[in-house]
Design a protein around this nucleic acid. Structure first.
Lengths: 223, 223
DNA sequence: CTTATTAGGACACATAAAAGACATATAACC
DNA sequence: GGTTATATGTCTTTTATGTGTCCTAATAAG
């Protein structure tokens, strides 16, 4: 699965240009022009990166940042027309990771996004880094699962699914959100594929499968 | 209240650098260079996070992990020297939440610590949109009810009903009104379904069930 | 005390998810 | 290029869970 970015910008011209550059660079781009729908989009796709314009009608970039930060520590880039230090402090306090001042070059923005992602990825998955739960250790480098000292092979989908669940521990994830993130937006099959892969993951997790909770009517949750 | 971390590392140089980074990030840092005093420190300060070097004289990181785990589920990060320790991790009892391989960047370690803390905190005190009453917290995101620290699973209807009551606190709600809002206008069944679901909600609310008052001849009220 | 109304329990029915079987797609190998 | 193995996705059956109805006991109102 490629990198996904949620782009929130009300000026159509800027949004389209930026989106094009990101697509060119291999990103999957979700676009919206206002803050309140941005939150809905976030919950639906769980993007790897969020780019927010500060100046937007109704719900501005700061407000969106606050809402997103309630949900996760996903990298956030704020786009600003103002360059005053007050704004910067305000934004950093709220949890934005970077500031890009308008006018900016889309190339530079993509470059910053990539370096931020790289940092975030290292931060999530540094080499040799592992996450454990119960008797299990997930090796983020070899994409393997170690269970009671034994190696358990995971298929790519199983691995992606497990990592997505782990990164959103304790959050209820709808089939929709899981599909969008692990399978991608272009997947147009039955949302029950998620069930099938959850089933297979549970089988491989064996004694630790209880961590994956079914949330009836919605989806799943990792605890 | 600031975050506190107990740092157990026998190499002075590493310990001091790491401690500095954590202090810089607003943490209160307790340091010690050996495993046995680590337990004493733990009992004295009850830190929010424990960072342990695996390789230590006398009592190693695994032993300390075991001791700490007897006391609580506090987040633990183990520092391992290169991947040669991977083999050791195989056979040992687990219980640490993360493993960071040396050499590591102190920045990354602080970042990991923060995200781990965030997860742990979310787990204990879910943020996001919540409504609380008495000892209960309703999480509008996970559709769950937390009662005296324990998660209580709500079915979709129970959740909708509870949220409707909460949104109209202190208002007497007729069965008709409840039906129309929670079941929808098209529902053509018996209005006594409301009673049944109120009953089930009360059972799940247990000690907080007194908030749901019966208004005889009309319906119910949440106080 | 009588009647109206609700609570509680038992049960039937509806819906959602798990399990299993199978078909198709993808990759690896000869 | 054809063959095999593996991974992925769909379909059907089984199981679990949620929902709604009914009946009886308890409780409140008149």
């Amino acid at each position: 699965m490629g990198k996904t970015v949620l782009l929130v910008e009300d000026e159509v011209r800027i949004r389209e240009v930026v989106a094009d550059y990101f697509k060119q660079d291999g990103w999957e781009v979700y676009e919206t022009d206002n803050g309140s729908s941005a939150i809905d989009w976030y919950d639906a796709v769980y993007p790897d990166l969020v780019i927010l314009d500060i100046m937007m009608p109704q719900m501005d970039g700061f407000a969106v940042t606050r809402q997103v930060r309630k949900r996760s520590g996903v990298p956030i880039i704020l786009l600003t027309a103002r360059s005053s230090d007050d704004d910067k402090i305000h934004g950093f306090e709220l949890g934005a990771d970077e500031y890009v001042t308008k006018p900016f070059s889309p190339k530079v923005l993509v470059a910053r996004a990539n370096s931020l992602m790289k940092r975030a990825t290292e931060h999530y998955l540094p080499t040799g880094h592992m996450i454990s739960f119960g008797q299990a250790i997930v090796n983020m480098k070899s994409h393997q699962l170690q269970l009671e000292g034994k190696q358990v092979e995971l298929t790519p989908k199983e691995y992606e699914l497990l990592v997505f669940l782990l990164h959103h521990k304790n959050n209820v994830l709808s089939r929709e959100a899981i599909l969008n993130h692990v399978w991608g937006l272009d997947f147009d099959g039955d949302s029950r594929v998620v069930d099938t892969h959850i089933k297979k993951l549970r089988a491989k997790l064996s004694c630790e499968s209880h961590h994956i909770k079914t949330v009836i009517g919605t989806g799943y949750k990792f605890e």
